[in-house]
Design a binder for these strands. Structure first.
Ligand SMILES: NC(=O)c1ccc[n+]([C@@H]2O[C@H](COP(=O)([O-])OP(=O)(O)OC[C@H]3O[C@@H](n4cnc5c(N)ncnc54)[C@H](O)[C@@H]3O)[C@@H](O)[C@H]2O)c1
Ligand SMILES: NC(=O)c1ccc[n+]([C@@H]2O[C@H](COP(=O)([O-])OP(=O)(O)OC[C@H]3O[C@@H](n4cnc5c(N)ncnc54)[C@H](O)[C@@H]3O)[C@@H](O)[C@H]2O)c1
Lengths: 224, 224
DNA sequence: AGACGCTTGTGAACGTGTGCACAAAGTTGC
DNA sequence: GCAACTTTGTGCACACGTTCACAAGCGTCT
């Protein structure tokens, strides 16, 4: 299955869940594509990787398709997650209710700062970073979330990997190396804003260019 | 400039900043690529879109290249940002110091909940959503960050656009439509986790498949 | 039952992105 | 001033992703 398709399955899943809540029983690729904000041909091709679950002339059965995607992504089981670094962001993540409803359970919170250890956040006691290996093994944790400062990110990832974690979501703005077999994804807010700024500048730049062109025309008019 | 290149420029910028702080004056494409975690040919092709700023046989001058990328992204000016939805995540974002150092200034905080309005967060008073248009125009805000619940996201984006915002970063897990000319990027943590879960499952699935194969072999051995 | 209309699933064309490999261009050492 | 060495910038081939367009298949209505 293409990586681009995998990245869109959660999108479809969310759209299907919304439809199911509204009591919709079947949906065409055109409608579902509109809900998910993608091209309908792309949607059909994506879904075709799961199998032929549609009915020609009718569409897709919402509940059935939802189940198939859930199974494909691997959300039939709950995944235990550890969050490392319980600062600003770590607190927000720990308190966020949206993970549980999507198949993820925050199983442990870890920080290196002794003044933070023992604090109760979202019903969990913050534990010390040195206990990481024990925690990961005891709770069967496969996914780690890194919300420490950038300078600690590589060390924390190394420890997570050593403890047996094979999937990491990194929020720290740092380039981290992990051994093969370990999946690393990053969420980088500053980068996102910078990409927006680039396009924003070009929008304004286009306006400036137009002005320059107008200026040239003006100059020509005056000189001609 | 290719979109993929634009998305990597912030990465290079960060790597260059780190090098500059370490006092490195020049860097080869090989070294810089390693710092940024990309292929060196890709890095050189990306940089070639900015112009021919390298010196053959030597490499790139760190400070100069940093300045060129900063200019290209449009970070020579500071961008004013408004955050809408000052809950868990909004607080974390408002308190985050990493934006200011990268050319973004949190200029205003907005919420619809009257019990939140007036609260002081990160040195700013939370203002009411109805004032949005006024705020955006007075402060010359071009970028909006949406950290409201999903159900409010479309409404908030519509209001932001109506107020004159032309770039939006959305944290709510919702598909949002914006008119042409407005850039919308989304950060979706659940999706990221789900992508990790998919690969995680396949890792385990590979192990299970092996077991199944072994089982088949065993059955064959018993029957044969 | 058969014709009609609708929607899926997919072949094929196209566009974008990646990475190799090397000529061109610079530096360093003698 | 020249040869040897280093590193950039880029042409080219390939891989990946997207979109069009349509035959095949299903349900419905007469
Ligand atoms: N807060 C945000 O909204 C935001 C936005 C974008 C990016 N980030 C990034 O997310 C990360 C966390 O941000 P934050 O605002 O929560 O920072 P923070 O300073 O509030 O929290 C960091 C936490 O990590 C802990 N920590 C430090 N070293 C550790 C280690 N080796 N092991 C375990 N824990 C350790 C600290 O004790 C602290 O509690 C940073 O890298 C930041 O750049 C945050
Ligand atoms: N907290 C997290 O770590 C986290 C993680 C992933 C995604 N998210 C998403 O980010 C968003 C915010 O999450 P949160 O945990 O901060 O939620 P929250 O409920 O704590 O905060 C939401 C805030 O938005 C305000 N709001 C609601 N409607 C509004 C409107 N129309 N205009 C202006 N403000 C409005 C509310 O008053 C509240 O203060 C949610 O969509 C959530 O799914 C949060």
């Amino acid at each position: 299955m293409p990586e681009a398709t995998v990245a869109r399955l959660p999108l479809y899943l969310r759209a299907l869940t919304t439809l199911a809540e509204r009591g919709v029983a079947t949906v065409s690729s055109e409608e579902l594509a509109a809900s998910a904000g993608v091209n309908s041909a792309k949607l059909r091709k994506d879904l075709s990787y799961l199998g032929s679950y549609g009915t020609r002339g009718v569409g897709y059965e919402v509940d059935f398709l939802r189940h198939q995607i859930t199974r494909e992504i691997g959300l039939t089981q709950d995944w235990a997650v550890v969050i490392v670094g319980i600062g600003n962001l770590g607190h927000a993540l720990a308190n966020y209710g949206g993970f549980a409803s999507r198949g993820f359970r925050i199983a442990a919170l870890v920080d290196a700062d002794l003044s933070r250890v023992g604090e109760e956040v979202a019903g969990l006691k913050v534990r010390h970073a040195d206990e990481l290996e024990q925690i990961v093994q005891d709770l069967g944790i496969a996914i780690g979330v890194v919300a420490t400062p950038a300078r600690a990110a590589q060390l924390v990832c190394d420890r997570l990997v050593a403890a047996g974690v094979t999937s990491i979501l990194n929020f720290a703005p740092a380039i981290v190396q992990v051994p093969e077999g370990v999946d690393l994804r990053k969420v980088d807010l500053s980068t996102e804003l910078q990409i927006l700024a680039y396009h924003e500048q070009r929008k304004n730049g286009a306006a400036l260019a137009l002005t320059a062109e107008q200026a040239a025309e003006l100059a020509e008019a005056v000189n001609g």
